[in-house]
Structures are given as structure tokens and as C-alpha cells.
């Protein structure tokens, strides 16, 4: 790498350093302030990208704390790609181990939900199966069917009421004390253009995780029943064909996706 570029890059990243050698403003004293414009552009735009992607996390801890944490994240995990819509995939993990945020144990999972939301927002387009696809499967073959789930789908299980916390911090639910504190499972999905975040049961989460591993439907129902005695297969099969699955193939057959 050329010296001029290495020096400039180093000074951009380290605010303790003076401007790189060999750069000048029209008078002899202006360079630090002018170099500050570049530092400022970088920091403000990266903070903006994180604030846009993690509004609930910001609301939970407040803007000042969020920005201070985000600055530390930016120092430790600068972007490696020019595509800013995906910057911050590592932010939830960072928050999880970030000591000053340990008093807010649900923060990292709220951020995980938001990170998944952005991935779903930009995921590939795909059309779900439909009622006709289900009607066409012979009854005895249904348990053997394996599915390709919509590319936007992610499932997040948290020991905290994460869907409720997310809803309260993005304006879709009034902020109120959560008296009945229990874990929640979230389904993140973008059937068309709008990301949906649904609270699903433990059985549904196990069902979808099993299907995502390409297990046949029968096995996924067994996994769901093991996780939740009250699991309702009919409901989940209907959801699968209406919104979640984009292709199916009989287990063991090399068949054509529907």
C-alpha cells in the first residue's frame, strides 16, 4: 500500500493521531479541522447506519448510551464491505459481551431481532406455496414432504419476552411493565415487501427449525410435539403452505420442487 493512503487511513481510525503528513489547508493551521471533516463523515455515517438498523436497541438504552456503545463497536468492528445495508450483523454479539450493558440482559436479543429484520427486508424474493399445492399432495405422502422455506425466514428464541419488548420499543405496542416475564420465540419473515415479526409457540419454533434442516414434515411435527404438547399441526401446516414454504419435494425423491 502507498504511504499516503496508509497514513490517511490510520489517522482516520485513530482520533488521537494528528492529520497525516503531507496534507494541507490553504493556511498552515487549518489541516486538523479539515481532516476532522473526513473523520466526522465516517463516524456520523456509520453511527447513522447502526441507528437506522437498531431503533429498538437505541430506545431501550437511550440515544446517548447507544451512540457511545456504537462508537466502541465501530472501533472494534469497522465495516469490511461497502454495502452499508448489512453493516452491524455483529452488533448483537458485541452488545451481549459489552459490560456496561449487562444490566439490560434482553438488549442483545432485541438487537438480534432487528438484525434479522434487516436481513429479511433485503432477502431474495420468492413466492410461497399455496392451498392447491397442499391439496395436490396425496394424504399418505404428506408426512414425507420436505420443504424449502422462504429465504427471508429466521427464527429467534429468547429467554426474554423479545417480541413484546421489540413491539413496545418500535411503537406498535404501548410501553408498559411486563409483569408476566417469560421467554418468547420470534418468527421473522418477509412474504412480499413488508417484514413481519410474529410471536410463535415453542412447538412452532421447533417445527420450523426441523423443516429448515430439511427434515420431512412428519419428523418436524414430532419435534414440535416434543417441544409443546399442545402443538396444533393443522395450523402450522396451513401457515407453511400459505406463507412460509416456497418449494417442496418428497423425502428421498429427487423430485421437482412444486
Amino acid at each position: 500500500m502507498q504511504d499516503w493512503q496508509a497514513n490517511f487511513a490510520r489517522a482516520l481510525l485513530d482520533r488521537e493521531l494528528p492529520p497525516p503528513p503531507g496534507v494541507s489547508a490553504p493556511n498552515s493551521t487549518g489541516a486538523p479541522e479539515r481532516f476532522g471533516v473526513y473523520r466526522n463523515n465516517r463516524m456520523v455515517s456509520l453511527l447513522g447506519a447502526l441507528e437506522a438498523r437498531f431503533p429498538a436497541a437505541r430506545k431501550i438504552v437511550g440515544t446517548e448510551f447507544f451512540k457511545a456503545a456504537a462508537r466502541q463497536f465501530i472501533a472494534a468492528h469497522p465495516p469490511r464491505s461497502p454495502i452499508m445495508i448489512f453493516y452491524g450483523d455483529a452488533f448483537p454479539e458485541f452488545l451481549e459481551s459489552f459490560k456496561p450493558a449487562q444490566g439490560v440482559p434482553y438488549l442483545a436479543d432485541a438487537a438480534r431481532l432487528e438484525a434479522a429484520r434487516a436481513r429479511a427486508y433485503h432477502a431474495a424474493d420468492a413466492k410461497p406455496l399455496c392451498r392447491e399445492a397442499l391439496a395436490a399432495v396425496p394424504g399418505e405422502a404428506l408426512a414425507d414432504m420436505c420443504f424449502t422455506l422462504h429465504p427471508s425466514i429466521e427464527i429467534l428464541s429468547s429467554p426474554h419476552p423479545i417480541v413484546t419488548i421489540f413491539a413496545m420499543n418500535t411503537g406498535t405496542m404501548d410501553l408498559a411493565p411486563i409483569v408476566d416475564w417469560h421467554g418468547e420465540h420470534a418468527l421473522i419473515l418477509r412474504p412480499e415487501y413488508e417484514v413481519e415479526i410474529r410471536r410463535i409457540s415453542a412447538g412452532q419454533a421447533a417445527f420450523l427449525r426441523s423443516l429448515a434442516k430439511k427434515n420431512p414434515l412428519g419428523e418436524a411435527i414430532s419435534a414440535a410435539l416434543a417441544a409443546e404438547a399442545n402443538f396444533d399441526p393443522a395450523n402450522s401446516i396451513a401457515l407453511l403452505f400459505s406463507r412460509l414454504a416456497i418449494a417442496m419435494v418428497r423425502n428421498g425423491a429427487g423430485g421437482v420442487p412444486a
Binding site: M1, Q5, Y38, N41, S45, P78, P79, R80, S81
Partner: peptide, 13 residues
């Protein structure tokens, strides 16, 4: 530079 993206348009000599 060096694998890091700066999200700004930076000058060159």
C-alpha cells in the same frame, strides 16, 4: 484501505 471500508469519498494525491 486494508480491508476496512470508510463509507466516505476520500482524497488522493
Amino acid at each position: 484501505s486494508g480491508g476496512i471500508y470508510f463509507n466516505d469519498l476520500l482524497p488522493l494525491p
